[in-house]
Design a protein around this nucleic acid. Structure first.
Lengths: 232, 232
DNA sequence: TTGAAAAATATGTCTGCACATATTAACCCG
DNA sequence: CGGGTTAATATGTGCAGACATATTTTTCAA
């Protein structure tokens, strides 16, 4: 048993009271000032504890209205979005990748739309296959806006690092969105990944922006067996 | 254009310098005290900004060693794990669920193992089908440890709220893990969800604990089309 | 030369205090 | 009574100073 001290102790105590139903879901809990007095600490310490609980979704806070126990415990999970190479190597497997395509072309309207680009805009289209221990691991289909790129072009076919890794090091994004879904493998994907068409693939789609400028839209289709894991 | 002030301005400026490569990945950035002097703010303000960046994975901090730009830009995504009913109703759809099974039985060894229970232990086994606008939405398969439950049993068949929602309100967990994957629908799942066997399902598996006591292990299989989405 | 002890240093956190800001509650007037 | 203005209040954030703690660096002795 470790007895937390400081703001973590406050957080733990508040959480315990919530778990114990001393403070019911939806109810307003005492103000920072009151709690600070009760626990004999400064208000800033209570603030730190409550802010943390709010970040976790345990309580909701609004100025003047006070802090209340979240009615709908939407606990939040934080998950890491790793670079594929490190993800593979982190499991002790050998990482390789192969650039399948690298062309400059007009994207389908849906892609241009998602990136907020004019229909006529031309983008780099890159398709990459990533391997773990020689087996297909991830099929990547990426549209890349040349505007924010240094040199206006992605690295050549012969590059030693993957597009994603290059991007991550050379074009920082300020904003993005990401979605996770399950999809049936299409013909082409299945062929590349060495699986049967229709197999269940874990798919991540990500869009990133540097300020107002769209950088890239990428679809990552993982070979069967892939699993994203995190702690709550 | 909004000009952030206070600690957010500090965070933005530090982030900008990192993005601009003024401070390269892996490099140590100036100390809190130095930055505080440069920006003309208190050290606590710089601390708040850097702490936030550390939480996002942009920098790594260690006492005495200082703050350095993260080498592996593992940006972290925070995603909400909502209660199904609210998720459905939030889209303006009608929510229903049907409890398919509710028995007290010994789980398969793999389940007992995952929960850290003795092989002979008996658990509640609950299978629930959730609907959105009358269409199958989510197939839930849950093993539930009676020990931490009030009344030692989950609500009866006739309950108006789903097991998950009941749990979330009555048995707070202190720890858990969660994983996301794509799996092919099995015969039973496919039948319940009204889809073809083998279809790609988005699957969430979650285990939760209250201290040392395992609470539940649940497998959520979402009907095709489901998508988890979040911002970066 | 090596290893242990001591000093130095950057972050982690706390305390009090102050002011800013959002939001609710109270008030007053037409 | 309704509606808009004003006051009250809880959180959000800031500041300066202090001590705690984890590491690294330096020092000194065997």
């Amino acid at each position: 048993m470790s007895a937390p001290k400081g703001w973590e102790a406050i957080r733990a105590e508040v959480l315990a009271r919530i778990d114990r139903r001393d403070w019911a879901p939806g109810a307003v809990i005492p103000s920072e000032a009151d709690l600070a007095e009760e626990f004999g600490v400064a208000r800033a310490t209570v603030n730190r504890a409550l802010r943390e609980l709010a970040r976790q979704g345990v309580v909701e806070r609004r100025r003047r209205a006070g802090t209340r126990v979240a009615t709908h415990p939407v606990r939040k999970a934080t998950l890491d979005i790793p670079v594929t190479r490190l993800e593979v190597e982190g499991r002790g497997q050998r990482y390789e990748f192969r650039l399948l395509e690298r062309v400059f072309a007009a994207p389908p309207p849906v892609v241009a739309g998602r990136l907020g680009l004019a229909p006529g805009a031309r983008l780099w289209h890159l398709r990459t296959l990533h391997f773990a221990d020689g087996r297909p691991y991830l099929y990547e289909d990426r549209w890349l806006n040349p505007a924010p790129l240094p040199g206006r072009a992605p690295p050549a076919e012969a590059a030693q690092i993957s597009i994603n890794e290059w991007l991550v090091r050379n074009v920082a994004y300020t904003f993005g969105d990401i979605s996770f879904s399950a999809e049936a493998a299409g013909e082409a994907e299945a062929a590349h990944l060495g699986i049967a068409p229709g197999a269940a693939l874990f798919v991540i789609e990500r869009t990133t922006w540097a300020g107002e400028v769209p950088i890239t839209l990428v679809r990552l289709a993982y070979a069967p067996g892939y699993r994203l894991h995190t702690l709550l």
